[in-house]
Each structure stands twice: as C-alpha cells, then as structure tokens.
Design a protein around this nucleic acid. Structure first.
Length: 245
RNA sequence: CAACGUACAGGC
C-alpha cells in the first residue's frame, strides 16, 4: 500500500492523472484498500488539472464507502473550484466541511479569499476576511498577500498599505513573496513612484529583494517609458551579484 | 505526510 501511495503521489504531483487513476484501479483489483492519502493525492491531482467533477465524484464515492476525509482534502477541492471560478461549489464544499464537524483553518480561508478575488468580488473577499478574523482564525503572510494584490488591482493603494501595516503590527513579517506582490502590484497599476519608494525603503531596512522584485520594477518602469531608469535598476541589481534570468 | 499567495517566457 505504501508503495502504491508513493507512486500515485508522484504521478499526481506531475499531473500524470491517467497513470494515477489506472494505478488506483489496479489497487482495487488487487484487493488493496486505498487510504485517505491515496484518495487525497488523486483528488488534489485531478483538481489541479481542472478535472473538478471527476475529483468531486471520487470524493463522494470514497465518502460513501466510509472514508472520512480531513481538512486538507477539502482544501484541495475548494482551491480547485475556486481557481476555476466556481465560487458556488467552493462555498458548498466549505459548508460540507463544517457540517462534518471539521474545523477550517487559515489555508482553507485563503483558498476561499483567493477564489473571490479571482472573480473580482473584492468586497465579498474583504467581508470574508473580517468574518475569518471574527471566527478567531489568524491570517498569515499568504492571506495578506492575496488581499494586497487584490487591492492594488483595483488601485486602492491606501488600503493595501493599511493591510501591510496591520500585518507588521501583528508581528507577521512579510516574506519575499509579500514584498514582490506589493511592488509588482504598485508597478503594474502604474504607481511607479510608490513602487520605487517602497523598493528603496526596503533596501534601507537591509532587506534583500530577489530577482522577481527587480523584474517587477523593471517592467513597471519600462511600461511607463522610463527605459533609462529601468536600465539603472537592472545594472544595480547586476552589481550586487544577484542572479537574473 | 498532504492543500493556499508574487515576477518573467512562449503558441494562435
């Protein structure tokens, strides 16, 4: 069983779902009972290649065979439906999760928030975020990244910065991805001045920005017809011995 | 043990 699980896990991670499903069938034929890990891998794999209905079907089928899934498997489905823009299904799975007496966690909420942002329901996402906090779940760096990106998209920079500060106030250190989200969010929305300023501020704080952050800024400057400035950032990055692609 | 967020490239 462990051997099967390991191979199936590998197939699923690389998106080779035909092979994975075939092995799952083979297990049944051999009289081996797939475990929650087996089903979890396959469901996650199917959801990632947009075979959502198959994923959900397998989920229901396993459940009716007495398998009790954990939050992670629910998370795979919520994430999958959310990415496909099927919010209603995502909510439905969320409700099922609660009905089963399972407790959601921050990751589940993040999946849901990201889903709402993807269909441009930013206000709904903000309400959801408030709700999440009311229910005493702690947002993490990922939660804030999702919201900051969303707010930059709709050009609510002030609010994006407010979240940025709220995050630090809670002792949550923004990670490399949060920085990049903020910088590229500002740059893409054409707010080069703010992006540049943040970039400089972070440098002063001794924070090392990675190549994605530089890319983001270079791109923003280029779009604003400031090729010269873009080039300067580029050179400066090179001088620091950073790896650029 | 497993689910979630950032930049860039390509094809029509």
């Amino acid at each position: 069983i462990c051997a099967y699980n390991a191979i199936i896990y590998g197939y699923c991670k690389s998106g080779m779902m035909n092979e994975a499903c075939q092995l799952l069938e083979e297990m049944k034929v051999e009289g081996l009972a797939p475990t929650i890990v087996t089903f979890g891998s396959v469901i996650d794999g199917l959801a990632k290649v947009d075979q959502l209905d198959d994923a959900h079907g397998l989920f229901e089928e396993a459940k009716s065979n007495g398998i009790k899934f954990n939050v992670v498997v629910y998370g795979s489905l919520i994430d999958g439906f959310g990415k496909a823009g099927r919010i209603d299904k995502a909510y439905q799975i969320m409700e099922e999760l609660i009905d089963e007496g399972l407790r959601a966690n921050s990751s589940i909420w993040n999946c849901l928030l990201d889903a709402l942002v993807k269909v441009e329901e930013i206000n709904e996402a903000l309400i959801c975020f408030q709700w999440m906090k009311d229910e005493k779940y702690s947002p993490n760096a990922i939660t804030y990244s999702i919201l900051i990106r969303a707010l930059c998209r709709i050009r609510k920079f002030r609010k994006a910065f407010a979240f940025w500060q709220e995050m630090r106030k809670q002792g949550l250190d923004p990670d490399a991805i949060t920085y990049n989200t903020m910088i590229s969010g500002l740059a893409k929305a054409g707010n080069i001045a703010a992006a540049n300023q943040l970039f400089e501020e972070l440098k002063l704080e001794g924070i090392v920005l990675d190549c994605a952050a530089c890319n983001a800024l270079v791109q923003g400057l280029s779009n604003a017809n400031r090729a010269l400035d873009a080039f300067m950032v580029f050179e400066e990055t090179l001088l620091k011995g950073q790896n650029l692609y």
